[in-house]
Each structure stands twice: as C-alpha cells, then as structure tokens.
Amino acid sequence: MVETNSFESPAQREASEQLALIESMIREGRKSTSYWGWNFVLWGVAYLVATAGSSFLTSRAAIWAWPVTMTLTGIATAVIARWRNQGEPQTTRSRAITGIWMGCGLGIFVFAFPLVLAGRFGDGHTFMGGIEVLLGAAHIASGATLRWRLQGAVGVLWWTAAVVTETTQYSLYLLIAFLAATMICNIGFGIYLMVLESRDKARLRAGQVAHA
C-alpha cells in the first residue's frame, strides 16, 4: 500500500497516485468475475421446494420432486448466468471456481439421479448425506481457491450437516440438519454475497476513473 501524504515532491505524489491507480485497477479486474450470491439463494430455495415436494407429495410424485426441481434450477442457473455475465472477462481464478461448481453440480446429478430412478431413495440418509458432502467439498475447494475462510466455514457446516444426516436415527433430525444448512449455507450466504455485491457496485460508481 502506498502512503500519499509524506512525499517531498509533486512528482513523487503523482507517482504514488499512479501506483495506487494501477493497484486498484488490477484488483478490480481480478475480482470482477461476476457475483454469484443470487445463485446460492436460487439453489437454496430449490432445495427447500424439493424437500417440501418429497415430504408432502404422494409417494409416486414425491420421487420426482428432487430430479425435476434440480433439473429446472440447473436450466434457470444456466440462463440467468448467461444473461448476467455477458461481457464479464474470464480469469484463471473464475475458471477454477466455475470448474469446482460444475463438478459439484454434475456430481450431485450423477449421484442422485440413478438413486432416484432405481427407487433407492430409501430413508434419505444416503441421498441427503451425499448431497451435503458434495456441497461441503465444493465450498471448501472454492474457499481455498479464493483464500476465503468464510466460505471454508460454510463448507464445514455442510459437512457437519452430512455427519448428522448419516449418523442420526431420526428422520426429523436429518430434515432439520438439511434445512438448517440450506438456510445458513445457501440462502444466508447468498444474501450476504448479494449485499457485498451492491456495496462493491456503489463503491465502484463513486470512485470511477476520470476521463483522461
């Protein structure tokens, strides 16, 4: 970081201003990999809808609650992401994060769809636990890539829910663990990211580069 009030000459002051501009622009370019808070909220709501569907629909329809909700949410994510990220530049980091979440999403699909189709949804321990483990892994990998402890903690919360889900004997606890993790790790975390996004955009509007 450059201190700007201790320079002896106008040239040094100008140089420090130039360095500050370079720093801020490089930072801006690297972090403008688009914002995904909306996506966490969308998937959180989708999990709630799928859980409600599998709990309250008749047994035949309940089987399809997860596959249908997940497929529709996947399509919605692709459409919204394409619309929101138009013109956003790609960075190595953004491609790494996209890879992590694509791997997680496809992993959940490959894990869950055959279980549902084969009628092995069972009591939900394996099904829900598997999803929680994959989500936790994606958050921890993403947190490590971004060097962001908060997201790592979100991943640990998903894994905690997975341990509860896999070990509890009560379906109610399984449901509570999944709903709590969804509310905190998806909806809460997503809303937090959306707040950060609006703050960042306001700050950017306030400090844009003047026309040279």
Binding site: L21, E23, S24, G29, S32, T91, A212
Partner: peptide, 13 residues
C-alpha cells in the same frame, strides 16, 4: 491516466 487504467485492468484478466 486512462491508458494506465486500461492496461492495469487488462493485467488482471
């Protein structure tokens, strides 16, 4: 200033 900003932005992407 603008050219410096542009080059710095492009350095990150």
């Amino acid at each position: 200033k603008l050219r410096l900003a542009l080059l710095s932005l492009l350095a990150g992407v």
